[in-house]
């Protein structure tokens, strides 16, 4: 396909949607099919999250962010801790950020819980070990999970230093109540995890947990954009990340 034709098709796509968006051509059974993005999609170069622990810990027992995520993504509930599926949840500070607790006793945040989720590492061990590229890193930094390709070997769970990945040990429908028809469910035998709500970013919406927190404890933005909210927070406050010594370069920051 030559460059002019590509440009033309891109313009045609743009015209159809009204506003600018990327476009790509693929062939299905000899016929060309064009694809694009939603015009309102949020685009970033390195998506990241900043969690204000003090703000979060003011509201003991609050589970709004978790509830929102569980509901939006049809995450099943199982009583047996072995079979739990978790995308975002709370852990005691010393479990989430081991060996960092004593340094920050004064602020008191190391006494309370920390919200944990997939770190969307810049150098993700899970992606390195996956034998089928079912988990992979997108250009915008999101560590994505292709549940159609996953063979369920669980090497990624073994490799993840943060315990952020879950496996469907049984049919997830057994643990589901009301189902959100806007998001697919999963089948037994595949791995899943937080995907930074990439399906919402594609439609111009912030991640569900960020939107659900009324206290502004969770901030989402582009780390590559010096003017972004996350960059401003990181400039003004001291932040830590989980297990930095491993060199994975997490994309989730904790203000302490």
């Amino acid at each position: 396909m030559d460059e002019d034709r590509r440009k033309f098709l891109k313009l045609a796509g743009v015209a159809a949607l009204g506003i600018g968006s990327a476009s790509l051509v693929k062939t299905v059974n000899g016929k060309e099919r064009r694809s694009g993005k939603f015009p309102q999609a949020l685009e970033g170069k390195r998506w990241a999250m900043v969690i204000d622990l003090a703000k979060c810990q003011e509201h003991e027992g609050c589970t709004l962010c978790m509830n929102a995520c569980n509901q939006v993504h049809n995450i099943p509930h199982f009583d047996d801790p072995r079979h739990e599926i978790k995308w975002i949840w709370k852990e005691p500070f010393e479990n989430a950020l081991p060996n960092q607790e004593e340094d920050f006793l004064e602020q008191g945040v190391s006494k309370g819980p920390a919200v944990v989720l997939c770190n969307h590492c810049e150098r993700p061990p899970c992606v390195r070990v996956c034998p089928t590229q079912a988990t992979f890193k997108r250009e915008d930094g999101i560590v994505m999970m292709d549940m159609h390709r996953c063979i369920g070997c669980r090497y990624c769970i073994v490799a993840c230093p943060y315990g952020s990945r879950s496996f469907n040990w049984q049919d997830p429908h057994l643990g589901l109540g009301d189902i959100n028809p806007g998001y697919p469910t999963r089948m037994r035998g595949v791995v899943e995890k937080c995907i930074f709500c990439e399906e919402r970013l594609a439609k111009g919406k912030l991640p569900a947990c960020v939107e659900a927190c009324p206290y502004g404890a969770l901030t989402f933005g582009d780390l590559d954009d010096p003017g972004s909210k996350v960059r401003k927070l990181l400039k003004s406050r001291y932040a830590v990340r989980r297990k930095v010594e491993l060199g994975t370069r997490p994309g989730v920051f904790y203000l302490v």
């Binding site: 047996d80 801790p81 040990w169 049919d171």
Partner: peptide, 8 residues
């Protein structure tokens, strides 16, 4: 599913 094993 693999839930019938002791793994988790």
């Amino acid at each position: 599913g693999l839930g019938i094993t002791g793994m988790g």
